[in-house]
Write a protein that binds this DNA or RNA. Sequence first.
DNA 1: CTGTATCCGTGTTGATACTG
DNA 2: CAGTATCAACACGGATACAG
Lengths: 231, 231
Amino acid sequence: MKLKKVTKEEKAGRGRWYDDACGTALAMELVGERWSMLIVRELMFGGRRFSELKAALTGISANILTQRLEGLEASGVLVRRKLPPPASVQIYELTEWGYESEEPIKALGRWAVRSPLHDPTLPLSAASIMMSFRTMISAERAGSLDAHVGFRFGPEPFLAHVANGGIAVRRAEPDAAQTVFETDPMTLASIVYGGRPIEDAEAAGALTLGGDRALAERFVTLFVLPDKFGA
Amino acid sequence: MKLKKVTKEEKAGRGRWYDDACGTALAMELVGERWSMLIVRELMFGGRRFSELKAALTGISANILTQRLEGLEASGVLVRRKLPPPASVQIYELTEWGYESEEPIKALGRWAVRSPLHDPTLPLSAASIMMSFRTMISAERAGSLDAHVGFRFGPEPFLAHVANGGIAVRRAEPDAAQTVFETDPMTLASIVYGGRPIEDAEAAGALTLGGDRALAERFVTLFVLPDKFGA
DNA sequence: CTGTATCCGTGTTGATACTG
DNA sequence: CAGTATCAACACGGATACAG
């Protein structure tokens, strides 16, 4: 017979619910679909446009990105905003609650990075590496350091503030920074997490350092990847 | 033309990788598939058999459960063990690293529960509510309470130890407990999170209390759901 | 230039029935 | 009890084509 009517569906645009009161189950419904959590990660430092998201998420197709943005909007994780007339482009921006997903996202990253399957040489978006800094900074190594560090990944500028053993990050021109890394995310990762000397990247033309060189040398030692499981 | 050779695949049985060095992306590859994280949750208090998992995860089908278990085993999240001859059944058990996923799982739950879409009246597995206790216990409310509390959900016994503002949980007969709840997960949830009086559940025949009644009354007040976003 | 909608080939998911 | 086989439905990603 099979009279499966319209019983489910129409909850927030998604079908297939777990029917489980557990918060973790709901989380997987909200951000568990392929790409969703990475979209949230990309938005973590401020609103982005469709094309910026598409460029940062290599492999996603336009229609899938549209679907995910719709789903996340319906779930209240992000909102679509139209910037005022001069530059009347549309941006996608996390809601206040959406920003609170930073903790779960970092916890997942901290856990997964210990997998033997983790390959730190894979490509990395700018938002990824900035998130990794927030996740992996060692309060012990940072000590009482208080410094403003800037980054320019092509057209994407970031300004970070190391203080109180933590690091705050926002998208901003790094003019006020004491030191500025002009490079790409993978090069920076190879230095911070792969032990590649700064001079090596400079010699390869992959990095230009501006400002306080000693501070830059110190900065790249502040982050520690947890040991791989079994190692 | 399209000469896409065998470049990828064969990593751990899964296709479709994000090709992203970010830990969060890897986490979603490891446990982001539908059902995977709920399977891990069910295993959080010890190894379980295929049929127990299938029963706890309402809606999952046998072939999907098989696939997920294979995937999680290939990723090193769980192992398949054959219990010694007397009861030579097979169980699935988290690896040491698999158990470490408790933190990300709790963080996700803590976040998602603030969604307006969260419906606490949905069904709940025994493992779910015990995990929720670990997630939602209020150190402030628990204060210096030190107590052993037991649960019997049909054939599933648990023993919890409240101490130091936290709660440890394991699957064990609650004989040594000072108080024992004999009920089902949803009834217990309605009391702890829904404010339903214990007497009401008892009158409805949904709960039998054993041991120290005053302790039970105190226990059910130890847990606080975070406020919904916007509330 | 910034998205959105549609088609299409492929792969994944899931319900049912079935086997060791 | 612990899965496998089959098949239908859907999701994914690529390539357009289209709209503001």
